[in-house]
Design a protein around this nucleic acid. Sequence first.
DNA 1: TGTAATTTGTGCGTATGTATC
DNA 2: AGATACATACGCACAAATTAC
Lengths: 124, 124
Amino acid sequence: MFRQLADLLRDRITSGDLAPGASLPSELRLAQEHGLSRTSVRQAIALLRSEGLVIVEPPRGTFVRAVEPTETVTLLKGDTATARMPTPVERRELEIGEGVPVIVIFRADGSRETYAADRIRIGR
Amino acid sequence: MFRQLADLLRDRITSGDLAPGASLPSELRLAQEHGLSRTSVRQAIALLRSEGLVIVEPPRGTFVRAVEPTETVTLLKGDTATARMPTPVERRELEIGEGVPVIVIFRADGSRETYAADRIRIGR
DNA sequence: TGTAATTTGTGCGTATGTATC
DNA sequence: AGATACATACGCACAAATTAC
């Protein structure tokens, strides 16, 4: 059931019914309106958080994540890049939101650069 | 408390005490050994799942994720690439594990390619 | 200014279902 | 058949931070 609620909310987000920055109904409201327990509602929201679709600002509420502007980082000859989920330390130091991967660039000289994936884009 | 348990397990994984492929104690065991409820244990494991550190194969158990070999995809002139968390549809179709982002390559000709981030690496 | 209401975070317990061994 | 183990769903309570009055 929590997946159904997540699907429903995801559709409202991708369709634009819930625009970026808009707030979702509170957990209690969602629970009452859909006849679910707050536990199930929180599971649904946790799913959307892991997908990077919403951010939660306790106790203000839950909001549709706004798409950030993208700066381009160039990949030079001999460089490689990967993406993965950040460690808790990286999330704190780079101020990475939930559901946002990091992009790690391995430079040809052996150095490394780590970026929040929602702030940069790789080019060449 | 679930964060402390997650930290403890994360350390055991990164230190090599729990090697890739090794199984974690069951939720019930972890709960008993640390004097926690199963709810808290599940929260801790959910955190490690979102970080891509462990995979759960119900009802076999929870295992340390093995690092997959990386094939390199080359970025050509005019191409750009980003990373983000996959949609549920992408996760199913590309068989993407939990806590694994996707890398999307936008080719100069307008086409797009989507890969599981733990299977490829970007180069040039 | 201070109090109350709202909202999310965290933790506990319980029960049932399902798949594996 | 039975035990084990994870998934899901319900309930309750209190804490902490923000907002409203």
